[in-house]
């Protein structure tokens, strides 16, 4: 019987080269970042009374402001619904073209995915700023911003769903000579419909959150009032707006979560 060999640690393992290296890199990046951003913990605390002053004023919400912001809150939800819907309508064909189990042409798929990746890199407020410049101040810019934002998000979620479907029904229909459109209608759609609707609602939740701040740059909805109250230093109005936004977001989340649970 041979004596069992004790496993030897290599030199790099014994000195934890990897761990030390990653830690050193992280520390260097953090130190560099704090130098660059001028982080000064002391300054935050020396100005803390200003911050608490602001919080104190926000803790006394001006409830009389509530009736004024109901209409813009509705507008915010309406913007989110329309924007998400328009984005979804455009996302569906792109999702089909980007799915590897439906489109076998690698080039076409690659180009479509590149477009989708590029669209997803753009932050929503940045899009809003540009569309306000094009379409002027108002909810049109907001709807278009949300449409593009949800287009990027939904097309990715959708093609990932499409890629997970069971290929059996598709092959069955293909073998009896069904056309592409017929196959998508009878074999693909029934398998993905519920998940599509669920992701649509999820995107709607995110868009309701996003649309509450888009108005800050002039793209309609409650954000316009948010910007106004902040620039007039009416922090008790800001507090009402934030609380109202919170209620709306929670109601929409609740409804959407309930619907999604029914669906799946």
């Amino acid at each position: 019987m041979t004596t069992p060999e004790i496993p030897q640690r290599s030199w790099s393992q014994r000195w934890h080269v990897k761990g030390v290296g990653w830690t050193a890199l992280l520390v260097a990046l953090l130190v560099g970042s704090s130098k660059m951003t001028g982080v000064d913990v002391g300054m935050f605390f020396s100005n803390f009374d200003q911050f608490t002053n602001l919080l104190v004023r926000m803790s006394q919400p001006a409830w009389s402001y509530v009736p004024i912001i109901i209409q813009p809150l509705y507008e915010t939800i309406q913007m989110a619904i329309l924007g998400t819907t328009i984005g979804t309508v455009f996302a569906v064909p792109f999702a089909v073209l980007a799915a590897s189990n439906l489109v076998h042409n690698q080039w076409l798929r690659g180009i479509i995915r590149l477009i989708l990746d590029l669209v997803r890199t753009l932050p929503d407020l940045l899009l809003a700023a540009i569309f306000v410049a094009i379409f002027g101040i108002g909810s049109t810019a907001g709807v278009i911003t949300l449409a593009i934002f949800s287009f990027g998000m939904i097309s990715k979620l959708f093609y990932e769903v499409i890629e997970t479907i069971d290929m059996g029904p598709l092959e069955a229909m293909e073998s009896v000579g069904a056309s592409k459109v017929t196959i998508i209608w009878y074999a693909v759609l029934p398998q993905i419909m519920n998940q599509f609707v669920s992701y649509f609602l999820y995107t709607l939740e995110i868009n309701v959150r996003a649309s509450t701040v888009l108005g800050y740059l002039g793209a309609g909805g409650i954000g316009v009032f948010l910007q106004r109250s902040l620039s007039e230093f009416d922090y008790n109005k800001t507090a009402v707006i934030i609380l109202a936004t919170l209620v709306v977001v929670m109601v929409i989340d609740g409804v959407s979560n309930h619907l999604r649970r029914v669906l799946l």
Binding site: Y74, E75, I77, Q78, M79, I81, L82, T85, I134, F135, G136, I137, G138, S139, T140, V143, G220
Partner: peptide
Amino acid sequence: VYTWAITGLHFTGLQ
């Protein structure tokens, strides 16, 4: 819901 959403927004601000 969609009727509410579409009729509620006015797209008049177009430049």
